[in-house]
Computed example of a mutant assay.
Amino acid sequence: MHTGLVHQLDFDRDGRTLDFLSIPFSIDRSPYFQLKVPISIIRNGDGPSVLLMAGNHGDEYEGELSLAKLIRRLDPARIRGRVTILPMANAPAVMAARRCSPLDGGNLNRAFPGDPSGTPTARLAHFLEKELFPRHDIVFDIHSGGTSMEHLPTALIERNDDAERHERALGLMRSLGMAHAFVADNGPAAPTSMGAARRAGSIGLSGEFGGGGTATIDSMAVTARALDNLLLAAGVTDEAVLGTPPSQGVPTQLLSLTRHSQGIYATRRGWYEPAVRLGDRVAAGAVAGWFHDLERLDMPEEPLFFAEAGIVISRRLHTHCEAGDCLIQVAEPVEA
């Protein structure tokens, strides 16, 4: 009654199901409160099994809005297999427009493998890794830069020691039709959804699709195209559901982000002014921006320099900064 996660889902039922994952969690205003996480299952017989999720962080909207559309538009009669959709996985964070859950401070993408007797975030992570992910061939978790960051659209997979599964993941990642992509190597114990998908035996795909705590025409278009392309590549559908033309032969530049020296971090309170844009190629020693101290107007702004060459992939959107804030990052282009 007071721990765990409960549901009444039938994963083998054909048609469209719209229901909730329920997590008991007593709060001040409601002692028998249950956190409700919406979930949809759309199934038509045997075939591929794909899990699509967004709202892992609550202030990343491209995936949330796109998956809400997909729930309404995906016709069970026109698919093969099963598509499970979690449009707002960290539901309390989505409703609060925050990165982390206001119920327990939980960052879902750092909570895996979770704990069935822990906080709501830990219980959800445990259910996803132990119960939901293993039911699916593919897990696609959609992210963006959130409220504080702007991010170059990039796809992501985790390196897999199984060569055949790794090649399958690479092929699916390229099928998304995104110009840039990462192969991350966070190790077998990674607390992320991609680490969880790998431990569950699924092929995990993720990516960053925008940022700024908003949805734009461009960020929604790249998200819709990636979803349509993935469902086509997985063999679930024969045509685009969200109305985007499939990408044909779009080259994907692989990137590497493995060193702290590829980022610039604030070391004190200040105000950051950028000198470059997302996607720019920069050299080591190039000016990344300027750090202002508006409490010391007699002091000139401090130029900041890239320690490494690469492609600018993210930058902080909030001009005001505190010590430890990441201001900008570059990734290194690598050969396939």
Rank of each mutant, 00 (worst) to 15 (best):
H2K: 05
Q8S: 04
D10E: 14
D14F: 04
D19S: 15
D19P: 09
F20W: 14
L21T: 09
I23D: 15
D28Y: 05
D28W: 11
F33N: 15
I39S: 10
I41K: 12
D46G: 08
S49H: 02
L51N: 10
M53D: 09
K69I: 04
L70W: 00
I71E: 06
R80M: 06
R82M: 01
T84E: 13
L86N: 14
P92W: 09
R98T: 14
L103A: 01
P113A: 01
G114A: 08
R123A: 07
H126M: 10
E129K: 02
E131R: 04
L132N: 11
F140E: 13
G146P: 04
T147K: 12
T147I: 14
M149E: 04
L152W: 09
L156F: 06
E158K: 01
A163G: 13
R165C: 06
R174T: 02
D185E: 07
D185N: 14
A190E: 13
G201V: 09
G201Q: 13
L205K: 12
A215R: 10
T216S: 15
I217D: 13
A221F: 12
L227Y: 03
D228Q: 05
L230F: 04
T237V: 04
A240G: 12
V241Y: 00
T244R: 12
L257R: 02
T258G: 00
I264E: 01
E273F: 01
D280L: 08
D280T: 12
E301Y: 03
E302V: 06
L304N: 03
G310V: 10
S314N: 13
C326I: 03
L327F: 01
V330C: 09
V334T: 15
E335P: 08
